[in-house]
Amino acid sequence: MAKKEAKKQPTTEELSRELRGYIAQIEALRAEIAVIDENIATYRTAIKTINNLRDLGKGKNILIPIGAGAQIEAKIENPDRIVVSIGSGISAELTTEEALTQIAKEIASLQALRRTLEEAIVEAYTKTEELLQKTREIGQEEGKSSK
């Protein structure tokens, strides 16, 4: 007859190790979301800038930041053409509409990624709460048996 092994109860130490793992995971996910939020904000600024430049029109003088708080004067030659990175080290000249569509797509994919990460955080939180509950129960049992 096959012996039925009793399921080994995890120790509080094992549980707290697992708990620390989940907490670290939550922190890493939060940091990743913060980076995504920064990127989304940058894309939104780009949309605003493209629209403003288009409204201002050709020939306007602008100041281009060149670092260390220094700026260089330039003139807008063609506000209807925007050079946008299309990834892998390549940038391409797009029409304003194409550029806005491309940026909107990037924002949408970042938002989708953000949602996935948020779901992962919720999952990790649930696991954390389960582990905390288990730790409490084991603590209580140990307290009773030591009396």
């Binding site: 299309i86 892998s88 390549i90 391409a92």
Partner: peptide
Amino acid sequence: QIEKSLEILKKLPDDRKFFIN
């Protein structure tokens, strides 16, 4: 990512300006 960039690139007209970073 490179495949995606290639796809975008191929769709654009030849007279556009392109740059390598």
